[in-house]
Simulated assay, not measured.
Amino acid sequence: MFGADKGNVATTDNRMNGKRLKIGIVQARFNASVTDALAEACKAELLALGVSDKDIDHITVPGALEVAVALQAMAEKSNYDALIALGCIIRGETYHFELVANESGAAVTRVGLDYQLPIANAILTTENMDQAVARQVDKGRDAARVAVEMANLLESI
């Protein structure tokens, strides 16, 4: 049971301890005003959780569909404890929204499963820009917390 004290890193007291963790962030530049805010909130939360600035690698890619390829390249390096996907897909008038949202989400999940590496998926999928802006800070922070917690959990298993 998660949180049970078995003398491991992922006890209730230490599951949010980012010290000693190496985290990679992949940020889509499309809808940059939102993704920049996601990245800023994410990095600030990682630092607050104890992750050292030197242990955070942050790269950017053109859009949400390119995020998974960069995550895969980072995962292949095998020196990350967790990865974070940041992006913003806003519904338009065509089916393109569904394609990008579904395919990017599936690809991010596949990379995590293939490499047994936690990936916090904070690629927002919203109906409009107002919804994206309303979520950008909280979801950036949430992604940092998920990455740290899951890295500690997997280390303890």
Rank of each mutant, 00 (worst) to 15 (best):
Q27E: 15
A68E: 00
A147C: 05
A44E: 14
A143V: 04
N8I: 12
V108Q: 01
V137Q: 05
D13T: 12
V67A: 06
K19C: 12
T126Q: 03
E40L: 15
S104K: 06
G7K: 01
A82V: 08
D81Q: 06
G87A: 08
S78D: 13
D138P: 00
G105D: 03
I157A: 14
K22T: 07
A73I: 05
A64M: 04
V26R: 01
S78K: 10
C88Y: 05
V108A: 03
A64N: 07
L113S: 09
A107I: 09
K139A: 06
V69G: 14
A151F: 06
C88D: 05
V137H: 10
A106R: 14
D130C: 10
Y95E: 14
A28F: 04
I25P: 04
A85Y: 00
V34Y: 03
G7D: 01
F30S: 11
E45R: 06
D13P: 11
I23A: 00
R135Q: 05
D130L: 08
K6R: 11
D13W: 10
S33W: 14
D130A: 14
L38T: 04
N31W: 10
D57G: 07
D114V: 08
M1E: 13
E127S: 13
E149N: 08
K139C: 12
V148R: 01
L38H: 03
V67D: 02
Q27D: 11
A70I: 01
E93M: 15
E98R: 07
E103W: 10
S78Q: 14
A134E: 04
L154E: 10
D130M: 07
K22N: 05
G7H: 02
I84D: 05
V148Y: 00
G92D: 06
Y80I: 01
H58S: 15
L65V: 11
A39N: 14
M74N: 03
S33T: 13
V9Y: 13
T94L: 15
G87P: 08
L86T: 08
I84C: 07
L113F: 13
A144G: 10
N121M: 02
A37F: 03
A39L: 12
L117A: 00
G7L: 02
A132T: 06
Y80H: 00
C88G: 07
D130Q: 09
A143G: 09
G140N: 01
G50V: 07
R135F: 01
I25L: 12
M129W: 09
I90D: 08
G3W: 05
T60Q: 14
I23S: 00
S33N: 14
A143E: 02
K54Y: 13
D138I: 10
R91V: 08
N31L: 12
D138E: 11
E45A: 02
G7N: 04
L86E: 08
E103H: 11
K54V: 15
T60M: 08
D36M: 15
I123T: 04
Q131K: 07
Y80C: 01
L38P: 02
L47M: 13
R110L: 07
T126K: 04
V9W: 08
A44C: 11
E98S: 13
R110F: 07
G92Q: 13
L99K: 06
R145E: 09
A32M: 08
L47P: 04
D142K: 06
E45D: 04
